[in-house]
Nucleic acid binder design. Structure first.
Lengths: 123, 123
DNA sequence: ATCATATTGATAAATCATTATCACAATGTC
DNA sequence: GACATTGTGATAATGATTTATCAATATGAT
């Protein structure tokens, strides 16, 4: 991640503009609108580099290959549209799940995923 | 799933006895205590059959291959021990996540996964 | 107990996401 | 602008999980 290339800039731009967790394939499709020659290998390479340098983080959802979003966001969870498949960032969090813990267990973190229809798919 | 075999009974027994979501490998290891000759193919075949007949359900956790648990349990979520890797069933649920939904979105279901140390790993 | 056939176990093959390879192109330093 | 070097794109290779294959075995109806 030393040189500034059209491809890398396009990928960063796409992640900023769409502002939701994107799969490598989604990144490729969107980035090709800016750099039509882009290949999937470049997407994987760049996403890996962004994660290593700390400017992106992987978003793992049940039964799905990792998506990626820009780092630095505050604690949040995700919504997965069951129709279009897009994942969106959610605000808010119930916060305390200790009442669900069996005796003797200790929790470090949690994940919440809501499933349903996004506003676009409900139109 | 027509005949009753030692292998299938062993797999059902293991799932009942351990009473937590099990990966195919975990099922194999436990079932071999009952039927030492058991092969991994039989585990996959049997789990698939159990799911098809509705007596087991897949449990998908972020970044993990599916585990399987017996069907018929009431709404619940899961705890994933970050040390031993075992997954446990949790009781209770905050229930309402509508306050997290963006305007125009509708939710159908949700998943919660807690991560931390199980009681065995804290001893 | 016999027999038709479903099941098993070992392993080859298929899948799918991701990474490695490598010739060619682009970057940016001098 | 020349050049050393990094980056790209096409695609082969990899790794992990799951499924297919098939000869041998076990089941259960007769």
């Amino acid at each position: 991640m030393e040189r500034s290339t059209r491809q890398r800039q396009a990928i960063r731009d796409v992640m900023t503009e769409l502002d939701r967790p994107l799969s490598p394939t989604e990144v490729l499709e969107a980035a090709r609108h800016k750099v039509p020659s882009m290949g999937i290998a470049t997407v994987y390479r760049t996403l890996k580099g962004l994660v290593e340098e700390g400017s992106a983080v992987p978003v793992e959802l049940p039964g799905e290959a990792p998506r990626y979003e820009l780092a630095g966001k505050k604690h949040h969870h995700h919504f997965h549209c069951t129709l279009c498949g897009k994942v969106f960032e959610l605000e808010g969090c119930p916060g305390d799940f200790s009442f669900m813990l069996p005796r003797g267990f200790k929790t470090e973190k949690h994940e919440i995923v809501l499933y349903g229809r996004c506003s676009e798919c409900l139109k």
